[in-house]
Design a binder for these strands. Structure first.
Lengths: 135, 135
DNA sequence: ATACAACCTAAACCTGACTTTAGGTCAACA
DNA sequence: TGTTGACCTAAAGTCAGGTTTAGGTTGTAT
C-alpha cells in the first residue's frame, strides 16, 4: 500500500505543508517518489511518522528527532545511543506528568475556590483574614 | 515584605527580563514601584506569579493569562468566566496527561525494544517477519 | 481537449515567548 | 566622591515550528 501526502495528512491529522516540512528537515530520509517527483508514503513511513509525533509530544525538537532518525539509518552501531535516548525521554515524560499533576492540584483548588465564590455570589466569602488584591 | 525584581527572579526561577516582559504584557497590573520607578514585589505579587506559572504550565498563552488577570480586576462580575476558565484548564490538563500516558506506553515499548536489541548486539533480533526499513 | 484538484519547489512570512542591546538612572559601600 | 552592581526603558533580535505565497506540473474525469 502507498499513500499520497494528502491522504497521510488526513490519517495523522497533520497538514500537507507540515509533512513537506518534515521531509525537508530530514525526518523521512527513506521516503520514495514517483518518476515525476510525487511523494509515495508506505506503511513503514506512516509508522515512522507516528514515532516522530510521539517524540514531538515527549518534548523533543525537530533537530533532535532528526539526530535519532539519522542514528536509525546507521544500523546497529547506534543502538546504545538510541536506547539511551529513549531512557532519557522516559525520564522527561515522567517529569512532565509529575509537573502536570502539581498543576492539577492548583487548578482543582481554584475550581473549588471559584465554585464556592460563585455559589456565594461573591469572592469575599474567601477573605477571612488576608484581604486586599489577589488572584 | 517587599522584594526586588532580582530577588523574585531567583525565588521563582525566572529571569529578570522575563519578569519585566510579564509586567509589560499586563500580567502584574497591581505591581507597585518606588518613587524612582523601581519595581516592588510583595507576597501577593509572588502568589499571582505562581498562578501565572501554573496557567502557563497548563498550556495557556500569555494573552489568555492576561485576559484572566483582567477578569480578576473586574471583581465579582467575572466570577463565572474565571470559574469556567479553570474548568476548561482542568479538562485541558487531563487531556495532556492522558496524551503523555499514551506517549509513555510507546516509549516503554521502545525502551524494551532497544534493550533487547542491545543485549543481542543487533536490531535483527526483532525482525521476525516484516523486514526492511524501520525506526 | 480541457478543466480542475492535488501535487511540486523555493522563499518569504508569521507567531509566541522571550532575550539581547544600547543607553541611561539609582543606591550603597569604600 | 567615585565606582560598582542592580535597576530602568525602548527597540531590535532570536528561535522553533510551522504557514503562506507564487509560480509551476501532474493526473484524472468529463
Amino acid at each position: 500500500m502507498s499513500y499520497s501526502i494528502g491522504e497521510v495528512a488526513k490519517m495523522l491529522d497533520l497538514t500537507v505543508p507540515t509533512l513537506r516540512y518534515y521531509d525537508k528537515e530530514g525526518l523521512l530520509p527513506l521516503l520514495e517518489r514517483t518518476e515525476s517527483g510525487i511523494r509515495k508514503f508506505n506503511d513503514i513511513d506512516i509508522e515512522s511518522l507516528k514515532i516522530v509525533e510521539c517524540l514531538k509530544a515527549s518534548g523533543m525538537s525537530i533537530k533532535d528527532i532528526r539526530t535519532f532518525i539519522n542514528w536509525c539509518g546507521e544500523g546497529d552501531s547506534s543502538l546504545k545511543q538510541r536506547y539511551d535516548m529513549f531512557i532519557e525521554r522516559k525520564a522527561a515524560v515522567e517529569k512532565q506528568i509529575e509537573e502536570l499533576n502539581k498543576v492539577m492540584e492548583t487548578i482543582d483548588f481554584k475550581c473549588w475556590y471559584y465554585k464556592t465564590a460563585l455559589d456565594a455570589g461573591t469572592e469575599a466569602v474567601h477573605q477571612q483574614i488576608k484581604s486586599g488584591k489577589s488572584i
